[in-house]
């Protein structure tokens, strides 16, 4: 009988490793950089890593929702750029109150997401194409507004968002934690969060269970736009200057973080708790590589490889299951 108990224990351990394996990777990476660089495992650097990944973590929540649905949102990087330019323009060129500027900009970001969702749900176009086109359009609009030039000289109060502290913790990190918590709450506790899994897992079954699939799509893409917008505001405040490169290629980093965190690219599977690990892995990797003087281009090679490996792992899991 002890044997059976042992077996059960082993099975549980395997399950645990499968579900939380990504944390093992994270700690291994932290261990590696701690040995490789003496500047890595010090408190101010770790706080640095947390602040660097905060934008990623914020946008990853919306992106994870989209992936759960079986979709993709390539426009988030451009939305971040546009949010930078528009919010900067409102505050500097129109002299608008920062709170109002943020409110209008976030509404805009949400509406862009809604537009993506509307097209995908009603015209039934592939999300990849819809959001790719949206990405290009938005980037063009950002250029048109800013004429390609940086916008700067924001009110001092605006800087708090990106540069302030709550006790020892940078405000961006606080915002990230709040948004991750909201994301986890939506997925674990609300009925519409449950619908994300259902629609992503089996759209036909979801529809026949009385779920209004179109509404779910509107909601998810709107949330993706909104969270990208929040990330954009944080970046703008942190850098104190709106540039047309603010969100360049961020969609791919966000995608990598989500897939690393075990969100399946085929929809229906994923948890916020693991997305956090995916986000941290990317942050640790970037930070560690900088400390080790790895060049920018080598970093690209490594980050691209990480994305490839993460997706390959996901697809292999799927093949095994079927």
């Amino acid at each position: 009988m002890g044997h059976l108990e042992n077996l059960k224990g082993t099975a549980k351990a395997v399950d645990f490793a499968k579900q939380n394996g990504i944390y093992i990777v994270l700690f291994a990476l932290i261990g590696f950089f701690s040995f490789a660089s003496e500047n890595f495992l010090v408190s101010h650097n770790l706080m640095n890593v947390a602040r660097q990944v905060s934008m990623l973590g914020i946008a990853a929540v919306g992106f994870a929702f989209v992936l759960l649905l079986g979709g993709i949102d390539l426009s988030v990087g451009s939305v971040i750029t546009l949010v930078n330019v528009v919010c900067g323009w409102f505050m500097v060129n129109a002299g608008m109150n920062p709170v109002l500027a943020i409110f209008i900009t976030l509404t805009m970001a949400t509406l862009i997401g809604f537009a993506n969702g509307w097209i995908i749900a009603n015209i039934e176009m592939p999300p990849l194409i819809v959001t790719l086109a949206m990405m290009i359009i938005i980037e063009g609009v950002a250029f048109l507004i800013s004429k390609g030039l940086p916008i700067y000289g924001f009110p001092d109060s605006f800087a708090v968002i990106g540069q302030g502290y709550l006790g020892p913790i940078p405000i961006p990190v606080v915002i990230m934690i709040v948004i991750l918590a909201i994301g986890a709450f939506i997925l674990n506790k609300t009925y519409f969060g449950r619908y994300f899994y259902a629609v992503g897992g089996n759209e036909e079954a979801a529809k026949l269970s009385g779920i209004k699939v179109k509404n779910v799509k509107y909601l998810v893409y709107s949330l993706s736009g909104f969270f990208a917008g929040v990330a954009g505001i944080v970046i703008l405040s942190r850098t104190n200057s709106a540039t047309v490169t603010a969100g360049k290629m961020l969609e791919l980093e966000i995608l990598t973080a989500c897939v690393l965190g075990g969100v399946s690219v085929t929809g229906g599977v994923g948890r916020i708790s693991n997305v956090i690990a995916g986000v941290l892995i990317l942050g640790v990797l970037s930070n560690g590589m900088v400390l080790m003087n790895v060049t920018e281009f080598t970093q690209m090679v490594i980050k691209g490889s990480v994305l490839l490996i993460a997706v390959a792992f996901d697809c292999l899991q799927h093949r095994k299951a079927s």
């Binding site: 619908y195 897992g201 089996n202 036909e204 079954a205 979801a206 269970s209 009385g210 229906g268 599977v269």
Partner: peptide, 19 residues
């Protein structure tokens, strides 16, 4: 194809139409 949400639990599958 039209009924089961295979990656979800028995609990979630049972409650899906009355969530």
């Amino acid at each position: 194809g039209k009924g089961a949400l295979l990656d979800m639990t028995i609990r979630s599958n049972t409650s899906m139409a009355v969530l």
